Amino acid sequence: MRVLSRRGPAVIAVAAAMVGAPSCAPSAATVTVTPPPEHVGWDYQIGGGYTPPTGVKVVSRDRQDTPAPGVYNICYINAFQAQEHAEGDWAPDLLLRDASGAVVYDKDWDEAVLDIRTDAKQERIAAKVGTWIDECAAKGFNAVEADNYDTFTRFPDYLKGDHAKAFMKLLSTHAHEKGLAMGQKNTVELAPDRASVGLDFAVVEECGQWKECGEFADAFDDNVLVVEYSATGLSQACMGWDGTLSIVRRDKDVAPKGESGHLRQTC
C-alpha cells in the first residue's frame, strides 16, 4: 500500500430499504450527498483524533473514532484488506489465497487481502463493509474513504482493475444511500473511471512525491485532499497545487498531537 466532484451538493438516487448486501436499484427517494469543500485547510487524523488546528475545515478519522465538531468529517475504512490480525473476522473463503491455498498478505502492513474476484464474494464482503459505512453515518460523518482500492496493482496475479471497480461501486452506492459522499483513495490508474464508479472526491497520499497530483486534479475537478509524508513531497505538492488542492504533511504514523513523532505541516 502506497501511503498514496463536483462543486456543491450532488443529488443521488437511493435504493429502497436494504437487507444484506448493498443494492443498486434506484427508488423515487433521494438524499443530498455533499462532497468536502475544495481548497481548504485539512488534517489527516486516521492514527487518532485530536482538536483540529485553527483553519482546518476537513478531517479524516478512523471509523472507530468520533467526528470532529464543526468541520467536514471523512470516515476511514480499510475496505479491501483485513486489518492486521483480523483475518478471523472474515469467512476463510473471503481471504485471497495463492495456488497452494495460503492467504495472500500485504506484507508492508501484515494485512490479509480480501478476495473480490467474483460477484458473489464482492456482495458478501460489501455486506460487512456496509455495516461499517452504516456506523460512519450513525456517528455523523459526512463521507467515507475506502482504503486499498489499489490492491489489484500490488497483486496483479490475482486481482484486476475491473474487480476493484465493481466492488467499489457497491460501496459507493451504499454510502450514497446513507447520505455519505465516497472518496477514492489513491489509485491513479482508475481516476478516469471515478464517475462510473460513483466516487465524489479523492484522498491522495504522496501525489506530490509521485508527481500524480495533476491527474487526480483533472479527474476530480480539483476536489482532492493531499497528504504528503516527506519534505520533498510537500514541497512538490505546494509548488504546483497550493492554490488549487487541499494539502497537508503528516508523520508516517499519523500520530495524534501530543504523542511522540507527531508532525503536521502545510504549504
Rank of each mutant, 00 (worst) to 15 (best):
Y158D: 00
G47D: 04
D65C: 04
V224L: 08
G261A: 13
V103N: 02
D251V: 07
R250W: 03
Y105L: 15
A17E: 15
H262A: 14
A68Q: 11
M18C: 12
A91N: 09
Y50F: 15
A181N: 04
V56F: 12
D242I: 12
C207N: 10
A91P: 13
R97A: 01
W241N: 05
Y72S: 07
V104Q: 00
H176V: 11
Q45M: 10
Y149T: 15
G55V: 05
A195H: 03
H176E: 08
R2L: 09
E215W: 05
L159G: 05
T30S: 09
A126Q: 03
N186Q: 10
V144Y: 05
N148V: 03
G258C: 03
G243Y: 11
G258W: 02
P36W: 07
A219Q: 09
P53Q: 06
D115H: 07
K107D: 09
W241E: 04
P26K: 03
W210H: 14
V3Y: 04
N73A: 06
R249Y: 04
A99I: 03
K185H: 13
A29K: 10
V113I: 15
F141W: 03
K211Q: 11
M239T: 13
L159N: 04
A112I: 10
D218M: 05
A28P: 02
A175V: 13
R7Q: 11
A191Q: 01
K211V: 03
Q81P: 02
L171M: 07
A195C: 00
C238N: 06
G258H: 03
R63K: 05
T54Y: 05
L199I: 02
V129C: 00
W109P: 00
Y44K: 07
Y50R: 01
D93L: 08
R63I: 14
F152N: 08
Q265A: 14
T153R: 10
P37W: 10
L4W: 11
V14T: 10
L171E: 01
E177P: 02
V14N: 00
G130A: 11
E212V: 04
W132A: 04
D218G: 13
D110H: 14
G240D: 08
R6E: 13
L190Q: 15
D242A: 15
P156Q: 03
K128C: 01
S260P: 10
L245P: 13
R154C: 01
W132D: 05
W90I: 02
D115M: 08
K139S: 07
G208H: 07
G258N: 02
E205Y: 06
A143T: 09
A120L: 01
A10H: 07
V3G: 09
C136E: 08
A17Y: 06
D150Y: 10
Y44G: 12
D65R: 08
V197M: 15
Y72K: 05
G48I: 12
L96A: 02
A181T: 05
H176T: 09
K107F: 12
A137L: 08
D115F: 08
T187F: 13
Q122C: 13
A68V: 06
Q265R: 13
V248A: 14
A13F: 03
R124F: 11
W42I: 09
A29S: 13
K252I: 13
V19F: 08
K169C: 00
M1I: 05
R6N: 10
A166W: 04
Q64A: 06
V11K: 05
Y158L: 00
L225K: 08
L94K: 06
V104Y: 00
E215Q: 15
S23K: 06
V254C: 12
L94M: 09
Y158S: 00
N142T: 06
K165D: 02
